[in-house]
Design a protein around this nucleic acid. Structure first.
Lengths: 130, 130
DNA sequence: CCCTCTATATGTATATTGCCTATAAGGATT
DNA sequence: AATCCTTATAGGCAATATACATATAGAGGG
């Protein structure tokens, strides 16, 4: 098993071969979360569990992905030195990011079709209950 | 666009960010094809279009993936020097490969759920027709 | 003072990716 | 026989992606 599966322990090793890479799928999830409301990395890290990411998801991956999204102009950020606690970087979705979100939706629907093609063939061989 | 999307031209460049890497998803597709009947790389290359792979899918990727599956003991192969044409390497699914196929089915169903979670949220924001 | 929680960021070894090119057999065309 | 296409397999490589570990730092509790 691997930490790509929700609920897995960190560092348990992975032999399953993955499928959907963590950081890649994280991108559209972050974009859609930021479409709903602007937020900072640590908060987004926790919201990501709603999309099936592990509760032990590596924070470094989230911050790195956010920086990359900013490099690509899909999100913007500014420092938020507010009421107590360390300073946080507040991210917002850009217009370009919203466009990319639509592109991702198309892409993900395609991927899902491919998975359905696989699962249908699988069930036609092994049966539904398997 | 990129050659991950079926119908794309080879070498047209990719800025979409992918999602499901070609060679990763190719693995369960090859296993299920080999479950149905033993076959060789070039034939499998063409059968893969049934799972949404591009008709211009790079043959090198297919052969490399097959070799990797063999290294992992999921498939076996032997040379088939038969009636006309170049020699072909005939691949068959191993017992271990069939087990891995079941593991993949579980995994892909999980991935599908995650995509559904994304698409549902997407539709709740932008509407179904979008 | 130490520990935990919040919060952000970097380093690194290894694996994976897409693309290009090489090799070779056989058949058809010129 | 020379050229070309199709079938068939394989290796190289630069760039990127990955998982995991580690660094930094503020604030609050015990």
């Amino acid at each position: 098993m691997c930490n790509r599966h929700s609920g897995d322990k960190k560092g348990s090793g992975c032999r399953c071969g993955g499928g959907l890479p963590v950081e890649k799928f994280m991108q559209p999830c972050l974009l859609i979360l930021l479409k709903q409301r602007s937020s900072h990395g640590y908060d987004l890290l926790q919201q990501l569990t709603e999309f099936g990411f592990s509760e032990r998801l590596d924070p470094g991956s989230v911050y790195r992905t956010l920086r990359r999204l900013e490099d690509e102009g899909l999100v913007t950020s500014h420092w938020d030195v507010g009421e107590g606690g360390p300073a946080r970087r507040l991210y917002s979705l850009s217009d370009e990011g919203e466009e990319m979100l639509h592109a991702w939706a198309v892409h993900i629907r395609q991927q899902r079709k491919r998975m359905d093609a696989f699962l249908e063939r699988y069930q036609s061989i092994f049966g539904k209950q398997d």
